[in-house]
Design a binder for these strands. Structure first.
Lengths: 120, 120
DNA sequence: CAGCATCCTCAGGGATACTG
DNA sequence: CAGTATCCCTGAGGATGCTG
């Protein structure tokens, strides 16, 4: 979970909550689909391990970014979605996404960037 | 340095470059002061070790975010400043900073947040 | 299906001492 | 002053196997 302070500034506090290899991606994924099941999320995030996905989701839940809805069925179904806080955080990351996108395009044009995994 | 891809989305690419405990703070500091010497930066970032500060600055230089100007004097003087890319990245983080600031204020109001180090 | 438990690796990061 | 150079350690993150 976030360390809950002390923070040096707002960016510090914001970064604290998005840190973690998959959190910004989970935010993005949940925002795109509205609601996703655990397995869908897993397939949408190439390279996550189960453990990491559970862990990051739990932390984001503690931080009030993600809502977890459990359906007591067989087989079990659990659906994840963004809370209002999660949604606003995702919006706050929009500008960073645009910046990153432009950077990727520029680096690709210069042949510096590896767009696709070399082994793929 | 950033891993230079492959990236899943723009946010992924952006986060890649700001990751690292001190980078967003260095961005913020350099943006506020325009230009800072190594020692000033060190004092402005409570808790950084020399090693980490050098390391993060070098990576940011490689990533084209920071400019390093060396003055061959005795004693040595080195001044750091943001490149246009660094400046635009900092701007892109503005919304995240605002989000974080509001979060801090809300958590503080609820008594959840530790604003000041307990030992201080 | 959606986890939990365990074990293990490795790199991010800290502490300390030395130098041009 | 602005760094190198080392050594060390924690913990984030990965791999694998089991369960309600």
């Amino acid at each position: 979970m976030g360390r809950r302070g002390p923070y040096i500034c707002g960016i510090d506090a914001g970064m604290d909550v998005v840190a973690g290899k998959w959190k910004s991606l989970i935010l993005w994924e949940l925002n795109n689909y509205g609601t996703r099941r655990f397995g869908e999320l897993r397939r949408g995030l190439p390279g996550v391990s189960e453990k990491m996905l559970v862990q990051q989701l739990r932390e984001m839940e503690e931080d009030g970014l993600v809502h977890r809805e459990i359906y007591r069925e067989v087989p079990p179904r659990v659906e994840y979605s963004l809370t209002p806080d999660g949604t606003s955080l995702n919006e706050a990351l929009g500008a960073l996404g645009t910046w990153g996108q432009q950077r990727v395009e520029r680096l690709a044009a210069e042949g510096i960037l590896v767009e696709v995994s070399p082994t793929a």
